[in-house]
Design a protein around this nucleic acid. Structure first.
Length: 465
RNA sequence: GGCGGCAUAGCCAAGUGGUAAGGCACGGGUCUGCAACACCCUGAUCCUCGGUUCGAAUCCGGGUGCCGCCUCCA
């Protein structure tokens, strides 16, 4: 299994430090607002990565934080006259609702920054004691010059970064590249007491260093997030953590690409942010997942209406194939799975694995789902036996449902009696060649959201999506 | 100014040295009372110029265009 490691900028064979135990930390949301489709890409994709690692035999510990204190939260609380805690609570709930809807599993631990302040203060004290940090008027800054490898993740030297000259001016800092570990609070703001006198709150980067260490140890196997976090957030995490422990912080750094809105960046200032909570009523969850997973994770994706409609159609093709198999299964001849089919399915499984092993190429892996759908449809047309149909269902259960969450295998719902009667009545009418009545009943059912399909395997029905 | 990414059929998107996966849409056909589902058939020499090579979408160089990070934006 190979991953493209931002640290080193190349694909590397993946292996864990600790046997088959994979320790993963993913940067979670700052809970000052509803999450948007770009956030969802991170959470959906790395959730799929976790699922794949599990299928590949790893025991995964997956940690994803909530940043529940920062400038934006304080700002949001001010405008609604709430406490920072209330704002955080609301958007953490909203986060879980969005993720549940999209079929993203919970992390093993969802640590919150505000619940780890003592540990952060402890870490900052150690950095101060070891000369990696200095305090100015209640703020504490990390001294980036202290270690020579600062910039190794983003592959920029300290000199390069300075030439950039887009660093903020702050005459309190010894060096413009230094960043805040701790910020003194203004009166009335949320704050914690500190050993160095002034109350304040943690800087952004320190929480991830501290919480990752607490739940996963000094060295993580995988640290992941959006590509924008590469610098400065992840760079700074590395600096702090490695200053604290003397150990490599994370062995594989994975960064996913951005989502573009049409031809422009998605940004609040442009007013084109697509929130998941809004998308939920426009598109099905599988279609949103397909949109996010049908492109390799490091590539940018462009969000357009057309692409979403294509996603909807694509996913429907998969679901229809599964439905067709399940429909026939109820009335199929008993029998064992055909050896030829077993072989074909195994070949498809291997293709999925090969794609995923190659830097989690979900785009390629998903194309195999369509090959499987075609195979499924062929088997249905040939009136395959129970064993064969079940084998197809099992295949889709593993990859279509468990790995990618693009199809559902739940049992078809029970139709209510009235609808069953109508279907039966229409069959009578068709048998009597009374097509006018048959079509009328079909229209009637369509109005109730039930679509009928007359197939060589009998009448099928589905809910209008 | 520094660092980095991208450019493949109408649209989306894989492919990183041996003559272009998959999906959506379009058209033709089979099936069907019709419709739907499904199946079959149909489409590209890969932004451009030059180089390396027996051979390049794939490697190197120039050009054009688009984009990201360097601003607590995933």
């Amino acid at each position: 299994m190979q991953f493209y490691n931002t640290l080193g900028r190349k694909k590397e064979e993946f292996y864990t430090v600790d046997g088959n135990h994979a320790k993963i930390y993913v940067c979670g949301p700052t809970v000052y607002n509803y999450i948007h489709i770009g956030n969802a890409r991170v959470f959906v994709f790395f959730d799929v990565m976790r699922r794949y690692l599990r299928q590949a035999g790893y025991e995964v510990t997956y940690v994803q934080n909530f940043t529940d204190v920062d400038d934006r939260l304080i700002e949001a609380a001010k405008t609604t006259s709430e406490s920072v805690e209330q704002v955080a609570e609301r958007y953490i709930d909203a986060y879980f609702q969005d993720m549940d809807h999209l079929g993203v599993e919970r992390a093993d631990v969802h640590p919150r920054a505000t619940e780890h302040v003592p540990e952060m203060i402890e870490a900052i004290q150690q950095l101060l004691a070891d000369g990696y940090a200095y305090e100015v008027a209640g703020d504490v800054y990390y001294r980036t010059k202290r270690k020579t490898d600062y910039g190794k993740l983003s592959q920029q030297t300290v000199a390069d970064l300075k030439i950039g000259a887009r660093v903020e001016v702050n005459d309190q800092k010894e060096d413009p590249l230094d960043f805040a570990l701790w910020k003194a609070s203004k009166p009335g703001e949320i704050s914690w007491e500190t050993p160095w006198g002034m109350p304040g709150r943690p800087g952004w980067h320190i929480e991830c260093s501290v919480m990752a260490k607490k739940y996963l140890g000094d060295t993580l196997d995988i640290h992941a997030g959006g590509v924008d976090l590469c610098f400065p957030h992840h760079e700074n995490e590395i600096a702090q953590s490695e200053a604290l422990t003397g150990q490599p912080f994370a062995r594989y750094w994975l960064h996913n690409g951005f989502i573009q809105m049409g031809d422009q960046k998605m940004a609040k200032s442009l007013g084109n942010v697509k929130r998941v909570v809004d998308l939920r009523s426009e598109y099905s969850a599988p279609a949103i997942r397909y949109f996010l997973l049908s492109v390799h994770y490091r590539q940018p994706i462009t969000f357009t209406k057309q692409v979403m409609e294509q996603a909807e159609a694509a996913v429907e093709r998969l679901q229809t194939a599964v439905n067709n198999v399940q429909h026939l299964l109820k009335q199929a001849e008993p029998g064992d799975v055909k050896p030829v089919l077993t072989e074909k399915l195994e070949r498809l499984s291997n293709k999925v694995k090969a794609a995923m092993n190659d830097d989690l190429n979900t785009a390629n892996a998903i194309s195999v789902l369509f090959e499987a759908a075609k195979l499924a449809n062929e088997e249905v047309a040939q009136q395959a036996n129970q064993g064969s149909l079940q084998a197809i269902i099992d295949w889709f259960s593993l990859y279509g449902e468990t790995l990618f969450g693009l199809v559902e295998l739940s049992e078809a719902e029970i139709l209510d009696h009235e609808i069953e009667m109508l279907i039966e009545k229409r069959q009578q009418a068709r048998a009597n060649r009374n097509y006018q009545e048959a079509d009328q009943i079909r229209d009637e059912l369509a109005a109730k959201g039930i679509l009928l399909e007359d197939t060589p395997q009998g009448v099928r029905w589905k809910r209008k999506s």
